[in-house]
Design a binder for these strands. Structure first.
Lengths: 196, 196
DNA sequence: AATGGCACGACAGAAACTGTCGTCACTGAC
DNA sequence: GTCAGTGACGACAGTTTCTGTCGTGCCATT
């Protein structure tokens, strides 16, 4: 017989999301989370660097997945095209929509959690730009392309969460198309009609 | 005679930047900052919501300045053009280059500070997008245009800090030009030659 | 059966932050 | 001139987050 219950991280993450939803992030202490999950406060910090981190367990998985996808798609495509292509495969590592929604609501309700969300996205962005750079793309070009791709990603993800039967890849394509329109609608740039 | 020394915020911010530079953010306590600035720990939290905030005093000023500039430039320009035009006036509210450099180094050396930097930029981004939206720009278009403008801003600011006699407005124009090139270099978009 | 690794509990403590109350220079009304 | 605010601060206690350290018992390897 095992000395402790299984899957401590899963228990902590579920307990945390419940409590954050019930009473808010600030009003729940780490002691309450660990009490509900059935371990001690000290053990919480063995699994997570700080209190916020308990909501961001899947971040590395998404990063690895997208970095690999950019590697695959990178062949003959322009940097932004490679990124947009890779993004379309992201839905595979998303949480179920309702869990993603609860998590999003908790983050939106608390600036400290939003800060953490931002640095996770920045880390993802840096990893993608680095992947492009390793494939010979100029550093500034990689940065600009990745920033645009992340803008598309955020927009598509918001819409994916909001619309019950949305298909993420389609939202990515639509958003990327809109982004290119916005980039080109200008007095000084090419006045060609948008992509079709 | 005044009961207390003048400019407590200025003293706190200078003391904090000194200490962060000398021994790092994590290794300096709020008590040390307030001791050097000549007041108590409790008063620190009357001026700043938390320890990190002491490095981000000028954020509101930049935000107001840019929001106003977008309002002025908004007339007949496309959203992204209005933002890029506004950004070119940002240097007026920058700190001296050496102070900006120290601040940047402290932020780059500490993830917690970088998180705060990101949420400040996100707040600026939201304010700019809101300004566009108030002028009748579609919400998604405003978001995409603002994200691209912020990408240009970050890139231009990095270069402004790195190069001793750089002119910010010129860096903004160059970076915006590069961004449009990257957006257009694609198999599906317009294949016209870049802006000149 | 001995060995070491690993995940956790138990405990102590530093540092970040908050609540509350008292103090005193300054301000404006009278 | 005086006298009740007001505002900025000090003093102090308390909570919560986070860290350091050590001990314990299950488990796998040999």
């Amino acid at each position: 017989m095992a000395r402790w219950e299984a899957d401590p991280r899963g228990r902590l993450e579920r307990a945390a999301l419940e409590l954050f939803t019930e009473r808010g992030y600030d009003q729940t202490t780490v002691a309450q989370i660990t009490e509900r999950a059935g371990l001690t406060e000290r053990s919480f910090y063995r699994h997570y660097a700080d209190k916020r981190e308990v909501l961001f367990g899947g971040g590395e998985e998404l990063e690895k997945h997208l970095v690999a996808a950019v590697g695959d798609a990178g062949a003959g495509l322009a940097p932004l095209d490679a990124l947009i292509t890779a993004l379309q495969a992201a839905e595979a590592v998303f949480r179920p929509r309702d869990a993603a929604r609860k998590r999003r609501d908790a983050i939106a309700a608390n600036p400290a959690l939003y800060e953490r969300e931002l640095i996770k996205l920045a880390s993802l962005s840096a990893a993608l730009a680095d992947t492009l750079a390793r494939r010979g793309v100029d550093a500034r070009t990689a940065q600009l392309a990745t920033d645009m791709a992340m803008s598309v990603f955020r927009l598509a993800f918001e819409r994916w969460i909001a619309e019950d039967d949305a298909h993420f890849a389609a939202l990515v394509r639509e958003s990327a198309h809109e982004l290119r329109q916005v980039a080109n609608t200008t007095g000084s740039g090419p006045s060609s009609s948008p992509t079709r």
